[in-house]
Structure formats: C-alpha cells, structure tokens
Design a protein around this nucleic acid. Structure first.
Length: 474
DNA sequence: AGCACA
C-alpha cells in the first residue's frame, strides 16, 4: 500500500466536464461559482464549500468542450479567474460527474434542522440555542427533540437567506463552552435544511418555543423541573388519560396496517385518526378517539392482547400526550378518518354522519417531508415526548393501496365458526359497537368486531376482504 | 492551493 500520505498530483490531467476549483473565498456561494463559470457553457451541477476549509468547489458542465474552454481560457489569460478578488485555481476533476449533489437537507429553506452532537437533551437549553441562532436574525420558533441521531432542534427563521447565513456560519462549529455544562466535551452542530416552512408549536415549554406568540400557553407538564408524574393509588406512575392511545406492537410477525388497526380499535368507538411509526426497531401507533372515555375502554380491553393468534402482534397500550394528531389523511402509515374522501363521503352522509370538512385542520400537513420523519414529527406537536413521536414516510406513497386487505393466510389464526369479514371500514365510524364493549374483556379468546354493522358497509375499495377477524389471544 | 459523497 502507498502510505506516503502525499497525494500524487497529476500534472497532465484527463479533461473532464467536471472542474475542480480551489482557493475560493470562504463559503463561496453557488451563485458566485456560476457567475464565474457561466460564460463557458451550461452548468448542470455544482458542489460548493468542499474541503476542510470549505473553499473548494466542483462545477459540472453539460459538455466536455465547455469545461475545456474554461480551463484553456484561464490557462492563457493574463487575468486569473477570480471570485471576490481572490484568484481561483481551476483544473479538471478526476471524476466525470458530480454525484449526490443535493440531498433534501441541502435544499435551502427558512427552517434549519440542527443536530447537536455529543450532548444529551438536558445539556443544551432551548435558551442557549435561541441565543446562538439569534445572532443571524429573528428566530421565530424552536422545537427540540431527541432522536437516534442525537439531540436535534428545528429552528425557524424568517426566510431562507437568514437560515442560510446561520447554517453557513455554524455548521460544523461548536456552541461556546461557557454556554454549556462542564461535563460536555465537544459539541458540534450539524445543520441542514428542514423541509418545513412553519413549525407547529403548541406550547411554550422546555422543548419548544414560539417567539412570535408570547400568549401561547405554557405547557405546565413540559416545564423543566416541574415534571412530576401523577401517582396512582398503587404508587406507580399514572399517566394522564387521553383520547389518544399509544399502541406498541410486540412480536410483530405479520403486517399491521392502518386498516388492521382501524378494524381493531373501531370496536370501541369512532377512530378519528391513526398514525403508525417505527420506534426503536419496533412498531408503534397512535390511535385517536373523540373522547377519553372511549379511549379508556379500548385501552383496558385491548391491553396485552394479540391481534393475531399465537402471540403475534401483541398490543401494549398507554395514553399518549397527544390530543389531536396531525397526520396525512391517506398514506400507508397514517389515516385521518375525519377527512371526507370521495366514496367515503357518500356513505358517511348516507348514514347520517356529517362529514365535517372543518375538522380537517391541517391541509398543510400533507406536503413533503422528504425522509425527515423526525422533523415532520417534531412539528406535528412540538411538546410531544420523544417516545411518542409519530412519523410517516411520504416516499412510500407510490405503492400504497387505498385499502390494504388484512392478510388472510396467517398460520394458527383460529376463529371457530366465523368467516365474517374482519373489516371495520373507514366508512363505519358510526357503526362502532359501544354496546359490545362490555364483552371485550381480557381473557375472552375472541373479541369480535360488530359484525352486522361491518357487513352492512361496502368497502370503498370494493374488493372482498378475505381476512378473518383479528384474534385477541392472551 | 491540490478532489466531494457514502
């Protein structure tokens, strides 16, 4: 192996339509780069701020001859190539195309996604973050959260120019030591752009702030130092009740889709919204009912039971801190049943249930969250605990079905004497068998859906469900 | 002033 450590520079370089530019001024912008290169041809790609000093760049021309013309021009010119008065050295790159130029996080926006490496959430207060980023302009909102990647913050500026200046100045830098606790070692900021334009901050808390709205209520449970979970009679932590249940699914041998969950949870009342997300390699879901009472009944009835026989897809339920999920109306990871849908609408109206378009609070919730599930989730409800951050993956949209059938071929799925479809459809929110909930007690092997009601409804997808009712074994 | 990204 060559271990000299000295790069072997080639003095005769193979022409490439990609040019390597050095000695650029600090944080040279793409615009400055393009201004320099544009006279020689069509620029199809760039990569700026490359190298340890971020003073190198690559430019890719559409045509090799254009690159050659630029190199040739400056090779024979008495005036060197310059940016901001600095001489720029140009040579052919040793690669022939620029790859992976712009990840989603490189597309500028007014909201930054900041990962603070090497710290825990408690080490960097939101006030410190605010202080650091306010140097570049008015910070509108901040939402912080913890993810596998570390402690992260979404920081909303007025515009992408302000956000860019903050990013350019702070990316890769560290928060000044005097702002941090003693025990914190290095703490580098990794900054990219979020796809968000406006964060949805519900409370002022130690996790989230909205500096544009001083009257926003303070979330008492989210204030640092006041977090003291209520204790139940048995002395165990008692989580506050909620109309939204957090379901974690254990031993998930089979697919658990939004539709499966809707079927299961509709047995206890109208399911308004569902969001499925991954957590620590497992699967969790948030299920929203209209009221706490219904959620409580569902929680008690379903806790510890399995969706499928054989101990598969065992449910564990707790109350979420959410009260109103902000989810895509139709995706394979989430569903908002309060949003009228063609086909559904007719059924709902026919059954006397007003399809209330006013309930659709978040027409903006659908747009792209390119892979930034943490970001999307954070904005969903900024004060949410890290353990309950829903996410969804809009990239999965392409292959989604409107209604996915419950698989009908689960081994060991016993349901004696029943061939009744397991479907509670999105069209049957009113068909929920409250009257039956008393039967839905643990220990009962089969906890059936309201079968007549279910059968009376036609699924929008039109296909005949081949599945059997979910089985709630112990 | 000397080649990114995963």
């Amino acid at each position: 192996m060559s271990t000299s450590g000295q790069p072997q520079f080639r003095y005769t370089q193979t022409p490439s339509k990609v040019l390597h530019l050095r000695n650029l001024p600090w944080e040279c912008t793409e615009e400055e780069l393009i201004d320099l290169c544009r006279p020689f041809g069509k620029i199809v790609n760039t990569k700026c701020n490359v190298g340890a000093n971020r003073n190198q760049a690559f430019v890719e021309f559409a045509d090799l001859n254009q690159a050659i013309s630029m190199v040739s021009y400056f090779a024979s010119s008495s005036e060197p190539a310059q940016v901001r008065g600095k001489t720029v050295y140009i040579q052919y790159s040793n690669r022939h195309e620029i790859v992976n130029n712009k990840s989603p996080g490189d597309v500028p926006g007014n909201v930054l996604l900041v990962t603070i490496e090497g710290v825990e959430a408690g080490d960097v207060s939101i006030d410190v973050i605010h202080l650091v980023f306010s140097a570049f302009g008015f910070v509108h909102k901040i939402a912080t959260f913890e993810k596998a990647a570390g402690f992260q913050a979404l920081i909303q500026f007025t515009d992408s120019e302000t956000a860019s200046s903050a990013r350019n100045a702070l990316d890769g830098r560290s928060i000044p030591r005097y702002l941090l606790p003693e025990h914190v070692g290095s703490c580098h900021l990794r900054i990219s752009y979020s796809a968000h334009t406006d964060l949805n901050i519900k409370f002022q808390s130690h996790r989230s702030r909205d500096y544009t709205n001083p009257y926003l209520p303070v979330n008492p449970t989210a204030i640092e130092g006041i977090v003291q979970p209520a204790l139940g009679p048995d002395g165990k932590k008692k989580e506050p009740e909620s109309n939204v249940l957090l379901a974690s699914i254990e031993n998930m041998q089979y697919a658990v889709t939004v539709d499966v969950l809707h079927t299961v949870f509709s047995a206890f009342g109208t399911v308004q919204k569902i969001a499925i997300f991954e957590k620590n390699g497992g699967m969790q879901a948030l299920v929203q009912y209209p009221d706490v009472t219904t959620a409580a009944v569902a929680k008690d009835a379903l806790e510890g039971h399995c969706i499928y026989d054989g101990g598969y897809c065992k449910l564990h339920l707790s109350y979420s801190r959410h009260t109103d999920l902000n989810v895509k109306a139709h995706s394979d990871r989430s569903r908002d049943y309060t949003v009228p849908e063609s086909g559904l609408l007719a059924v709902q109206q026919a059954s006397g249930l007003a399809a209330a378009p006013t309930v659709w609070q978040n027409p903006q919730a659908s747009p792209m969250f390119p892979g930034n599930e943490y970001a999307a989730a954070a904005a969903m409800q900024a004060q949410v605990s890290a353990g309950q951050v829903p996410s969804w993956d809009p990239t999965m949209q392409a292959g989604r079905q409107t209604f996915v059938s419950v698989p009908s071929t689960f081994p060991g799925q016993t349901f004696p004497g029943s061939s009744v479809p397991a479907y509670a459809t999105a069209a049957t929110p009113g068909a929920s068998p409250h009257a039956q909930t008393s039967q839905m007690t643990p220990g009962v092997a089969s906890m059936r859906m309201n079968q007549p009601a279910l059968q009376s409804n036609v699924r929008p997808g039109g296909s005949s469900p081949g599945g059997q009712p979910p089985y709630y074994g112990q």
